[in-house]
Design a protein around this nucleic acid. Structure first.
Length: 870
RNA sequence: GCGGACGUGGCGAAACCGGUAGACGCACGAGACUUAAAAUCUUGCGGCCGUGAGGCUGUGCGGGUUCGAGUCCCGCCGUCCGCACCA
C-alpha cells in the first residue's frame, strides 16, 4: 500500500521564522485590524487586561493574549466589527524602584520597556488595533483623568479626610497593606508606623448597594468573582440602637447615648456588656482623667494594623466604669468596656455583647467574668437545659429568657424588637432605626509618589483645596527628578510645587500626592473607544456604542479591586455624563496561571529550565545540569517566578519554535481557567502538530483519489469539527477546540491514506486551515496559500457548517443488562422503541446474557441507551 | 474561624439534562523505514484474570436514591483559593 499521507520528499518543513514576520507585515499592510467606529456590522469588543510595562512579556501574557486573540479573530470571521485594542498600565512603583536602583528616569525606563514589549507582542501575531494604543503615563491620557477627578469632586463623589496609613519612616513613604511584611516596610525593613494623613477618597460606598445588586445581572461573569465581590462589599441588615448612659460624659458637648450597630437585635435580652472602639469619642472623653484607660488605648493603637497581630491578639478590654441602660428595660444597667476588637471604621464603633450567641463576645465575657444568658434555643434542644459554656450558638431557633419575645423565631424577634424600638423615644429621637451596613470602605486614592497621575488640586491658605481650572490641565509631572533622597520628589520640587492660588492669586502649593494606579486602569477600556479625542475623556456616541466590553479576559488576582473600581468608575462617569453605560464588562473570563517545574542543584540553588537536561528511563525522570552534568533535583510545580528561576522567556520560545507553536500549546492541554503546566515535551508536541498540519495540507492539495466513501466520511468529520469548534470557542473552551482539531487532522490523514477525492480533501483541508486560524494565524495563512486560496484567512468569512452532515442515519446504542454493558445495537436514527427492543432481543450476545430469562422491563432512551432489567 | 471550588489512568484532561468512563494530547512500550540517529508511519497503553472470545473491577472514602451515578443526596477525608476582630 502506498502511503499517500507520507511527506513528499521535496516538501519543505514549515518555516515559522520566515513565515511569521511575512504574514504580520501582510496584515499590517492590509490594515485589517484597524477598527472603524462607524462600521454598520454588529460590534464586538474583546479586551485583555492591559499589561504593566515591567520590561519583558512573560508566559502569563502569552496565555492571556493568545486567548483574547482567538476570540477576536473568530468574531471577526463571524462578521463582527471587532475592537481589540492594547495599551500600557504605565504608572507605578517599579519605575521608581528602577530609578532608585539604576539612576534612570522613570519615564525613560517605562517607555523603553513599552517599546520592547510592543515588539514582543507584535511578534506574537496578535490581531490588535495598534492605532488605538494608549499609555496611562501619557499626559494626553491622564489629563482627562484629572478632569474627571475634578468633575467627580464637583458631583460629590470625591472627598478629603484624614485616614490612617502605613508609614515607612526610612523611605518617607506610605505603604500599601501588601507592602507591609511582618510589620516592616518591604524595601527598607523599617518598622512601619501608623500615621494620620489627609487623603483623597472616591466615594465608592455611595454605590455600595448598586454595586452589590448589579452583580446579579452579570451573568457572564464567573460565579466565584461575583461572590468575592459580594463578600467584599459585605452588605448586612441590622438595627442601630441607642443606649442611654446613666450619666453623660464629656466636657463641652455632652455625650448622652452610645449608638450600637447590630445584626442580631433578637438577642438583645442576652446582652451582658457594651464594647466601644479605642478611637470612640466616649473613650477619648474618658481618657483625659483615666491614665490606665489612656495607656490601654495607646496599646490598642500599637497592635492596630499588622495582620499577624490580629490573628493572635487576645480579646482585651478596659472597664470604663460607665453604665448604660438597656433599651428594653431602663432599670437594667450594662457595663461599658473599651475593647481592642471593636473597629471604629465599621458600624458605629460600638457593639453590644451577647456572649451566648457570639463567639468573640463569649471569649471576652468568660475572660472578664460577665456571664451569659442563652436567649435562642436550637430546635433540637430543650430550653430548660440549654447552656452555653465556651462555644457560642449563632444559629436560628426559638426565643427563650426574652420576656415578650419568648417562643418567637429569631426572625420574628428581630422584627418585634425593631418595631418596638423604632416607636420609643429617647431625648426626642427614636431609640433605634433599621440600617443597611456595608463592609466596603471608601477608596483612598492618594499616593505619596512621583510616578502617578498628579491630583489636580492647589492648596491655598485662604481658599483651601482649590481645583486646578480645566483650562490649565494637564498638571504634568516635572521631567527632571532625582531619587537620591528618600521621599516624594514632588515635595522637594519647589518650582513645580509653589504656584499661585487659582482663586485668589496668593502663593499656594500644589497637591503633591498622585493617584493610585488603579484609577488609571479604571477607565482605559472606555478611552479605547475614542483615544484620539483631545478635548474630552470620551465621545458619548463611541463609548455608548462599544461598551460594555463583550469579553474581558485577565487574571483572577484582579477579581476584587480592579474590577470593582472599574465598576465604580463607570458609574461615576455615567453620573458626570461621560458614559451612558454603568457596567463596564458584560463578559468576564479569569484565566489560570502558567506554572513550571522547579529545579535545584546539590547546593540547593535554583536552576533555570534552560540549564537542565531531563533524561527519561521508562517512567523515571532524571535531571542533569547541561554544562556540569551534575544531578539536579526536580521540585514542585509552581507559578513561574524570577526568584525560583522556573521561568521560560516567550522570546526564546518564539525564536526557536515560532509564535504559533507557543500559542497552540498555551491553548491546548489545560482548561483555560485552570493553571497550565509549561513543559518542553508539550511545546515539542505543539511544534510537531504545526509541521503535521503543513504536511497534511500540502498532501491534501495534491489529493486525487477516487474513494467516494472516504470522501463522505471526511466531509462528515470536517463539518462535525467545525460545529464543535464553534460551540467551544463561544464558550472559551479552547482545550476542547484543540481536541476537535486534532480529531479532524486524524480524519484527514486517514482519508488521504484511503484515497479521498480531490474535492473532499480540499474542502476538509480548507476547514482545518480556518479552524486553526484563530489560534495559529501565521501557519493558517501559509496553508491557505498552499491550498491555492486567495486573500487572507484573517479576512475570510467563517465557513458554514452543513447541519445535514451532522445527523447520522444510523445510531449505535449501548445495550445494558441490569446496568452493565453487554452489547451494541445499530438501528436507524428514527427507529421507534419497539423496533429498537426487537433488534436488541435478536442480538446474540443479549440472548446469551439473558440465559433464557425474559426482561421484566426494557428502558429505551432514544439515541442514548437501552437497558434491560431482568 | 467564615465562604467557595475541586478530587477521574504514569501526566494534562474529556464525559452537555443522570445514559458506553478515560475523547484529544503528552509520556512510555512494540514494530516499520534508516548504516545509524532524528523525523515520519503502524500499533499497544486504567487494573486484575484469560491463549482467545470474553469476564471481573475501577472516577478520594463510607452510605443512599435510581432500571442506570464521575454526575444527584447525606456523612467523612484531602487539596487549592478568597475573606478574616465586619458586630
Amino acid at each position: 500500500m502506498t502511503n499517500a499521507a507520507a511527506p513528499n520528499a521535496a516538501l519543505e518543513r514549515y518555516n515559522a521564522k520566515d513565515a511569521e514576520p511575512r504574514w504580520q507585515q501582510a496584515w499590517s499592510e492590509a490594515g485589517i485590524f484597524t477598527t472603524p467606529n462607524d462600521d454598520p456590522r454588529p460590534k464586538y469588543y474583546v479586551l485583555e487586561m492591559f499589561p504593566y510595562p515591567s520590561g519583558r512579556i512573560h508566559m502569563g501574557h502569552v496565555r492571556n493574549y493568545a486567548m483574547g486573540d482567538v476570540v477576536a479573530r473568530y468574531k471577526r470571521a463571524r462578521g463582527f466589527n471587532v475592537l481589540h485594542p492594547m495599551g500600557w498600565d504605565a504608572f507605578g512603583l517599579p519605575a521608581e524602584n528602577a530609578a532608585m536602583e539604576r539612576k534612570v528616569n522613570p519615564r525613560d525606563w517605562t517607555y523603553a520597556n513599552i517599546a520592547t514589549m510592543r515588539g514582543q507582542l507584535q511578534s506574537m501575531g496578535l490581531s490588535l488595533d495598534w492605532s488605538r494604543e494608549i499609555a496611562t503615563c501619557d499626559p494626553a491620557y491622564y489629563k482627562h483623568q484629572q478632569r474627571m477627578f475634578l468633575e467627580f469632586l464637583k458631583a460629590g463623589l470625591v472627598t478629603r479626610r484624614t485616614a490612617k496609613v502605613n508609614w515607612d519612616p526610612v523611605d518617607h513613604t506610605v505603604l500599601a497593606n501588601e507592602q507591609v511584611i511582618d510589620g516592616r516596610g518591604w524595601r527598607s525593613g523599617a518598622l512601619v508606623e501608623s500615621r494620620e494623613l489627609t487623603q483623597w477618597f472616591f466615594k465608592i460606598t455611595d454605590f455600595a448597594q448598586d454595586l452589590s445588586d448589579a452583580l446579579g445581572g452579570l451573568e457572564r461573569w464567573p460565579e466565584k468573582v461575583r461572590l468575592m465581590q459580594r463578600n467584599w462589599i459585605g452588605r448586612s441588615e441590622g438595627l442601630e440602637v441607642r443606649f442611654a448612659l446613666d450619666h453623660p460624659v464629656g466636657t463641652q458637648d455632652l455625650i448622652e447615648t452610645i449608638k450600637v450597630y447590630t445584626t442580631r437585635p433578637d438577642t438583645l435580652f442576652g446582652a451582658k456588656f457594651l464594647a466601644i472602639a479605642a478611637d470612640h469619642p466616649v473613650a477619648a472623653a474618658l481618657a483625659g482623667h483615666d491614665a490606665r484607660l489612656q495607656a490601654f488605648i495607646e496599646e490598642c493603637r500599637r497592635t492596630g494594623t499588622a495582620q499577624a497581630a490580629i490573628d493572635t491578639a487576645e480579646k482585651l478590654g478596659h472597664d470604663t466604669g460607665l453604665r448604660v441602660r438597656h433599651p428594653l428595660d431602663p432599670s437594667w444597667l450594662l457595663p461599658v468596656y473599651v475593647a481592642n476588637f471593636v473597629l471604629m471604621e465599621y458600624g458605629t464603633g460600638a457593639v453590644f455583647g451577647c456572649p451566648a450567641h457570639d463567639q468573640r463576645d463569649l471569649d471576652f465575657s468568660n475572660k472578664y467574668g460577665l456571664g451569659n444568658t442563652p436567649v435562642v434555643c436550637p430546635e433540637d434542644q430543650d430550653a430548660a437545659s440549654f447552656l452555653i459554656t465556651d462555644t457560642a450558638y449563632d444559629g436560628d431557633g426559638r426565643m427563650i429568657n426574652s420576656r415578650f419575645l419568648d417562643d418567637m423565631t429569631t426572625e420574628e424577634a428581630f422584627r418585634a424588637v425593631a418595631d418596638r424600638l423604632e416607636e420609643e423615644r429617647l431625648g426626642g429621637a427614636p431609640v433605634a432605626a433599621r440600617k443597611v451596613q456595608f463592609r466596603l470602605r471608601d477608596w483612598g486614592v492618594s499616593r505619596q509618589r512621583y510616578w502617578g497621575c498628579p491630583i489636580p488640586i492647589i492648596h491655598c491658605a485662604d481658599c483651601g483645596a482649590v481645583p486646578v481650572p480645566v483650562a490649565d490641565l494637564p498638571v504634568t509631572l516635572p521631567e527632571e527628578v532625582s531619587f537620591d533622597v528618600p521621599g516624594n520628589p514632588l515635595e522637594r520640587d519647589h518650582a513645580w510645587r509653589n504656584v499661585p492660588c487659582p482663586a485668589c492669586g496668593k502663593p499656594a502649593r500644589r497637591e503633591t500626592d498622585t493617584m493610585d494606579t488603579f484609577v488609571d486602569s479604571s477607565w482605559y477600556y472606555a478611552r479605547f473607544t475614542a483615544p484620539w479625542l483631545q478635548d474630552a475623556p470620551t465621545d458619548r456616541a463611541a463609548v455608548d456604542h462599544w461598551l460594555a466590553v463583550d469579553q474581558y479576559i485577565g487574571g483572577i488576582e484582579h477579581a476584587i479591586l480592579h474590577l470593582l473600581y472599574a465598576r465604580f468608575f463607570m458609574r461615576a462617569m455615567k453620573e458626570t455624563g461621560w458614559s451612558g453605560v454603568a457596567e463596564p464588562f458584560a463578559g468576564l473570563f479569569t484565566q489560570g496561571m502558567v506554572v513550571h517545574e522547579t529545579y535545584k542543584d546539590a547546593a540547593g540553588a535554583w536552576v533555570q529550565p534552560s540549564e537542565v537536561r531531563i533524561e527519561a528511563q521508562g517512567a523515571e525522570r532524571q535531571a542533569f545540569h547541561v554544562k556540569t552534568q551534575a544531578p539536579i533535583s526536580i521540585g514542585a510545580i509552581e507559578k513561574m517566578s524570577k526568584s525560583k528561576k522556573n521561568v521560560v522567556d516567550p522570546d526564546d520560545i518564539i525564536a526557536s519554535y515560532g509564535a504559533d507553536t507557543a500559542r497552540w500549546f498555551m491553548l491546548s492541554d489545560s482548561p483555560p481557567e485552570r493553571d497550565v503546566i509549561w513543559t518542553e515535551e508539550g511545546v515539542q508536541g505543539a511544534a510537531r502538530f504545526v509541521q503535521r498540519v503543513w504536511r497534511l495540507v500540502a498532501t491534501a492539495a495534491g489529493a486525487n483519489g477516487s474513494d467516494a466513501a472516504a470522501g463522505a466520511a471526511l466531509r462528515k468529520a470536517a463539518h462535525k469539527a467545525l460545529a464543535s469548534v464553534e460551540e467551544d470557542v463561544e464558550r472559551l473552551r479552547f482545550n476542547r477546540c484543540v481536541a476537535h482539531i486534532y480529531t479532524l487532522a486524524n480524519a484527514l490523514e486517514e482519508a488521504l491514506r484511503n484515497g479521498v477525492p480531490a474535492k473532499a480533501a480540499g474542502e476538509a483541508a480548507g476547514i482545518l486551515v480556518q479552524l486553526i486560524a484563530p489560534m495559529m494565524p501565521h501557519l493558517s495563512e501559509e496553508c491557505w496559500r498552499a491550498l491555492g486560496r486567495t486573500g487572507l484567512v484573517a479576512q475570510a468569512p467563517w465557513p458554514q457548517a452543513d447541519r445535514a452532515l451532522l445527523i447520522e442515519d444510523e445510531v449505535t446504542l449501548p445495550v445494558q443488562i441490569n446496568g452493565k454493558k453487554r452489547a451494541d445495537v445499530t438501528v436507524p436514527r428514527e427507529a421507534g422503541a419497539a423496533a429498537v427492543e426487537a433488534a436488541v432481543l435478536a442480538l446474540e450476545p443479549v440472548q446469551r446474557a439473558l440465559e433464557g430469562r425474559t426482561p421484566r422491563k426494557v428502558i429505551v432512551v432514544p439515541g442514548r441507551i437501552v437497558n434491560l432489567v431482568v
